[in-house]
Simulated scan of single mutants.
Amino acid sequence: MPPASAAGSRRPPWALLAVLLLAGVLLVHHGASRADGPPQPDPGAARLGTTTPPADPLPAAVPVRVRIPEIGVDAPLVRVGRDRGGWLEAPPPEDDNVAGWFTGAVSPGESGTAVIDGHVDNAEGPAVFYGLGSLRKGQHIEVDRADGRTAVFEIHGIDVVDKTRFPGRRVYGSTGLPELRVITCGGSYSARGGYSGNVVLYGLLTAVRPPA
């Protein structure tokens, strides 16, 4: 899948994304299982919805950094695509403070659904999105872009989904609005199968900060 550029590129239609991504995200567990595990979302946060109006969509621009102040995330973004099995790639597991932008979808802030992923842990312990499941609706995610703008997304849903029944249309499908999905591993853990699910965070573009 060719990477998106700052000037924009042809986006694959939903039918193609469904084939490539319907199975979900393979963000494997690289370390020993913790007794308590990463935080999991409140079941009440799974229902999507916000009363905040969306901001106007932005033109295409490469995202360079993601910040989630409530859980201490301030991480650079690298480009990720698909692996040989058609799964959404994860960023390198050895770096615990890096996240991935999926280049097969729109850039954060454009009309459509942008996707950022990252590991929940690695061999050394918690990784960039370990705390993702503790976030709540109404909190915010900030994405710095190469054009100097910062796209601010309000969380309007957060859920744990089973990897074997991954809801591709719900997660990756376009609503016609500038949206963001942030994805990591979640659910129960076993040494043989890793994590059973994915934590999926749903964000809507509600503000844009201009270049400083």
Results as ranks from 00 to 15, higher is better:
Ala61Pro: 00
Ala105Met: 12
Glu70Lys: 15
Asn97Ala: 11
Gly85Ala: 11
Arg79Glu: 04
Thr50Leu: 07
Ala90Lys: 01
Gly186Ala: 05
Pro39Gln: 09
Asp121Val: 02
Tyr189Leu: 04
Ala61Gln: 03
Ala123Asp: 09
Ser33Tyr: 01
Leu21Phe: 08
Val171Met: 04
Asp144Lys: 01
Gly81Val: 08
Leu201Ser: 04
Pro12Phe: 08
Ala105Lys: 04
Leu16Ala: 14
Leu22Phe: 10
Pro3Arg: 06
Val19Trp: 13
Gly131Pro: 03
Gly118Pro: 00
Thr103Phe: 03
Leu177Glu: 15
Val152Leu: 10
Val25Ser: 02
Gly112Asn: 13
Cys185Ser: 13
Gly193Val: 01
Arg79Ser: 06
Pro59Phe: 13
Val161Thr: 08
Gly118Trp: 01
Pro167His: 06
Pro178Ser: 13
Ala15Phe: 10
Glu94Arg: 04
Asp162Pro: 13
Arg136Met: 09
Arg34Ser: 15
Tyr202Glu: 06
Thr175Phe: 00
Tyr189Phe: 14
Asp96Asn: 00
Leu132Trp: 02
Lys137Pro: 11
Asp95Glu: 14
Arg84Tyr: 11
Ala90Cys: 11
Val98Lys: 00
Tyr189Met: 02
Asp147Arg: 08
Glu70Asn: 11
Pro43Leu: 10
Met1His: 08
Glu179Ile: 04
Pro53His: 05
Arg181Leu: 07
Leu58Ala: 06
Ile141Lys: 01
Pro2Ser: 10
Leu22Asn: 13
Thr184Phe: 03
Ala207Lys: 11
Pro2Gln: 12
Phe153Ile: 14
Leu58His: 06
Cys185Glu: 06
Leu135His: 04
Lys137Ile: 12
Pro39Cys: 08
Glu179His: 11
Asp83Lys: 06
Arg170Pro: 00
Ala61Asp: 02
Leu48Tyr: 08
Arg82Lys: 08
Ala6Thr: 15
Arg192Val: 02
Ala146His: 03
Thr164Asp: 14
Thr52His: 12
Arg149Tyr: 00
His29Trp: 02
Arg82Ala: 08
Pro3His: 06
Ser107Trp: 02
Arg67Trp: 12
Ile141Met: 12
Phe166Arg: 10
Ala123His: 13
Pro167Tyr: 07
